[in-house]
Simulated scan of single mutants.
Amino acid sequence: MPIPPSEITTDLLERLQHEVALFARRAEQTRLGGVGKARNSMDRAAYLLLHRLDNEGPMGVKALAEGMGIDSSTVTRQVAPLVDSGLVKRTSHPEDGRAVVLALSPRGRSRLEEVRSSRQRLMEVVTEDWTPEERESFTDLLGRFNSALAQYHSSVTQGDEQNS
């Protein structure tokens, strides 16, 4: 059951925002390599795009943007270097030849697996003294936090569009 806002202390909110800020900085450091090999680094945008294409299969720019909560021009800009490096391939939509479909290439899948393995190993090392239940609980809470942030940003964006 949620705690009424009047019972949430300013001190607790200060600690929470500070821990989130530290987490964001550490998460950015994590993208620089995972465990063991600097070659396993990948920027956050590339990782998230490749991960989504791997999980959901080929899709258009608009669907990819909507699913990630960003605009199509941002996806187009982020995908360009992935196409240039051969990690993502552009193909024509089977039903509408004018539409572009993005798909993870075999090279992209291989690269994603390298990075994923390295990052999974890092998570294993960092939480090695945690119980399975603590790992599960932290993962659930972090997922809930991310969902709440996404929902908040979505409602703010929709409110901005309605006020325009």
Rank of each mutant, 00 (worst) to 15 (best):
E128W: 08
M123W: 11
L142C: 13
E124D: 13
F138M: 14
R107N: 06
R107Q: 14
H153I: 03
P132L: 00
E95K: 12
K89S: 15
L141A: 12
R144Q: 12
E113C: 00
T157L: 13
S105N: 09
Y152L: 12
S117M: 02
Q162C: 01
L149G: 00
L141Q: 12
K89I: 15
T127M: 06
L112T: 07
S118V: 00
S164G: 15
K89C: 10
E128V: 08
Q120K: 04
E114P: 01
S137M: 10
F138I: 12
R144Y: 05
R144H: 10
L142E: 07
S118A: 03
Q162K: 08
E113Q: 12
Y152H: 10
M123T: 09
L82T: 10
E161V: 05
G108S: 02
R98K: 13
H93W: 01
L142I: 14
E95A: 13
T139S: 14
D129V: 04
L141M: 10
A150R: 13
V126G: 01
Y152S: 03
S117T: 11
P106G: 01
A103L: 13
G143Y: 01
A99C: 01
R119F: 03
L122R: 04
T131H: 09
W130C: 04
S85R: 15
S85G: 12
D160K: 07
V126C: 01
L82A: 12
V83A: 09
D129A: 03
F138Q: 08
R116A: 10
V83C: 05
E136V: 07
T91F: 09
D84K: 15
S155N: 03
R144L: 11
R121F: 04
L87N: 05
S85I: 04
K89T: 15
E161A: 11
L141I: 05
V115F: 01
N146Q: 05
E114N: 11
V88F: 10
V88M: 07
